[in-house]
Amino acid sequence: MTRVHDMGGRFGDGPVDPSPEPVFKEDWHARALAVTLAAGALGQWNLDTSRHARERLSPKDYARFSYYEKWISALADLLEENGVVTRDELMAGQGAGPSPLSGRKLRADAVAGALARGGPADRPVDSAPKFAPGDVVRTRRPARNAFVAGGHTRLPSYAAGAVGRILHHHGAHVLPDANAHGRGESPEHLYTVVFDAAELWGAPERAGDEVTCDLWQSYLEPA
C-alpha cells in the first residue's frame, strides 16, 4: 500500500481556507523553495526521487510539518543520501571544505535559462500504445510500486481497482515508479483516465460528476 501523502478522498480535514496571501508567506518559505531548486540543479537526483523523499518522511513528520518544512527536511535527507553533504556537516551547520560538485553550481545568470528550459517528461518509444481514447480500463489494485515495496507510484489509492475510460493518450512519459528508484526512466504510454464519481466513492456528491487521473500503461488493464 502507499503512504500518508496519498490523501485523495480522505475524511476529516475540515474546510479549505481560500483567504488571499502573499506568494511567500514567510521569508524562509521563499528560501526553502530556492535552495531546493538550486540543489536540484546539481543533478544528483531527479524530480521523482525528490517527490519520493517528501513522501517517505515518517507519517508523523509528514502530518506535522508545514509544506516547506517537508521540502527542506526531504532536501536534507537527499543531500546526505547522495553524498553531497555529510551527517557531520549537518550536525555542525557548517560545510567542511569545497565540494567536487561545485562546478555544477547554478549561477545567478543561469537561473532564468534553467527555469525556462524546464524538464520535459515525454520520451520517444517504439511500442504502440495499448489503449485508445474510449477504451474501458481497470487500474491496478492495490496502488503500489511494482518494483520496490513502499516505493513511489502515482496511482492514487482512491482510484485503485477502479474502472474508467481512456480520455486522452499523451505519448510516452518517464515512469516515476522506476525513475524515483534509480531504475532508469523506463518510459511508458501515459493516458488521462476519467472515472465516474460513483465508481470511486460509492455515493457521489452528484450523479454524473467525474474525476480524472493521468496514469501510465502498466497501471492499467483492459476491463
Binding site: A39, E89, S99, L101, A108
Partner: peptide, 13 residues
C-alpha cells in the same frame, strides 16, 4: 543551516 552548508561547499550561489 542548509543554505549555509551548501554555500560554504560552493554548491549554491
Amino acid at each position: 543551516a542548509i543554505e549555509t552548508i551548501l554555500t560554504q561547499k560552493g554548491l549554491i550561489d
